[in-house]
Write a protein that binds this DNA or RNA. Sequence first.
DNA 1: GGCTGTGTATGACTCATACATATAAACTAG
DNA 2: CTAGTTTATATGTATGAGTCATACACAGCC
Lengths: 191, 191
Amino acid sequence: MLRTQSSRQHAANALGALSLVVADRMNAAVEAVAALGPSAPAALAALHEFLDGGSVTQLSSVLGLTHSGTVRLVDRLGAEGLVERVGAPDGRAVSVVLTRRGRRMAVQILQAREKTLTSALSALTSDEVDNLAAALDTMLTTVTLARAEERSAHSHDRPQPWLCRLCDFAACGRSEGNCPVNNAVTTTNQS
Amino acid sequence: MLRTQSSRQHAANALGALSLVVADRMNAAVEAVAALGPSAPAALAALHEFLDGGSVTQLSSVLGLTHSGTVRLVDRLGAEGLVERVGAPDGRAVSVVLTRRGRRMAVQILQAREKTLTSALSALTSDEVDNLAAALDTMLTTVTLARAEERSAHSHDRPQPWLCRLCDFAACGRSEGNCPVNNAVTTTNQS
DNA sequence: GGCTGTGTATGACTCATACATATAAACTAG
DNA sequence: CTAGTTTATATGTATGAGTCATACACAGCC
């Protein structure tokens, strides 16, 4: 039926517009907090959430940057007193740890992000939010699987940035098994 | 009730993650087509959809670039044979028009965008899509109004990029009055 | 015909990133 | 125990998109 077709098209278009504007607003809110390059907020959030004390290489793969790009980024963050390089047990590796300022800033970043997101939801009723959440989870699963497939199909192209960058792990419900992204990747053993 | 609260938080987080990944994928799909800078696809789409023959200044405000940045962009697009500068009736102005190649590329860009978006929707039933579309429209209205308010509040900061860049006007239903963004701005006389 | 505003282009610079290479530490083989 | 290989980080150089300040070109008005 034609109605279904055009309805899907309208939904697709609205999804594109909303994704663009929400991502724009998140990035703007988040860069206002940490105004070093586009990757800096994601780096701080990642360190705060699960990577504190990690290596530069780990950080680079999370951000989808080259190693050298990540080195420069850590340099900038270090110059602002947001992170520190400390020696790792492995002599050649480096542990990147958040300073107190860095952690505060990471928290601010996550709060700014959440503020823009809840504001977008503000006109929806609780029921609508629940329905929306279900659809979002389904779509996240779909997209996560699609990404994994693309990556394994032609692995020559550049590393993809981490899908959950800027996520708030507590809100996402990862530890309770409610994160669709995490569930999708673990069932197909992708990182 | 706590359940509602945490449910909203989960929804917000999922919205952030999905927006980020969908925007990433759109941009990736679209930059693969036109590998000139991040703004090039949006410029071609805008010219194709509604701005063909427009001036550099108009383009710059649509893209949220400075005028000079837009001049460089038009230079690049021109060097690739995607657009042409032709004299406008006003001697100082310049009409930026798509070449045949440029228009083809714009169409490809919109198709690539639509492909990533429908793929994200693919696991949803028709009913779910309809519900989702309603929620998306509501959220688009909310966000559009929030943007307009911010813009009027402190108009000193840099121009915001156009919310509907990369939109497919046919799919969005703008001409039938179904575009929530357009409806929101016209009721508050913003552009 | 000379001002004043509007539209476009150019030059010098910034900044984040990539690419290629260098250094240094750890593992492994003989 | 020394030599070669792998892994991790750092640096030098280049690129490319964008900004700011400015210059140039035309239009309308007095």
